[in-house]
């Protein structure tokens, strides 16, 4: 179990310093700002009644929530997918696997680390 936690911690640290994550973070902020700006503009539009605004914003909220979860899922996939493959390709796995660690423990550690990291960013 300690091996799994070690790998999980390593994975969190590693994922946190990926430039991809920084880019995703910045884009997320941009989208959040634009969305809230859009919502704030709704009542000021001419020719709509307050009831229509309420109806439209409730539907838009659902839409935006789906969009965010979609982006989050896509973002996690982009961060997680190359995690093991890149380790193998670069030779990092060569240095770690001869240690007393099972491949399943490495896999579990990677999964746990990425899952926790994703939780953190959402």
């Amino acid at each position: 179990m300690t091996q799994v936690l070690t790998i999980a911690r390593l994975t969190i640290l590693e994922a946190s310093r990926r430039k991809l994550l920084l880019a995703l973070g910045i884009l997320t902020i941009v989208v959040v700002v634009l969305t809230s700006w859009g919502f704030s503009r709704l009542p000021t539009m001419s020719g709509v009644t307050p009831a229509e605004v309420r109806l439209a914003s409730s539907q838009l909220t659902i839409l935006v929530a789906f969009m965010f979860s979609g982006v989050l899922a896509l973002g996690s996939t982009l961060v997680a997918a190359p995690s093991i493959a890149s380790d193998i390709e670069s030779g990092i796995a060569l240095a770690i696997l001869p240690r007393p660690i099972r491949r399943s423990q490495l896999l579990m550690g990677k999964w746990l680390g990425l899952a926790l990291r994703r939780k953190g960013s959402s």
Partner: peptide
């Protein structure tokens, strides 16, 4: 054998460590 690996040291031919 997993436990025996504690008593081994290994320098791979082509390897890399976490650069960060």
């Amino acid at each position: 054998d997993l436990q025996t690996r504690r008593r081994l040291g290994y320098l791979p031919e082509l390897f890399r460590y976490q650069g960060w």
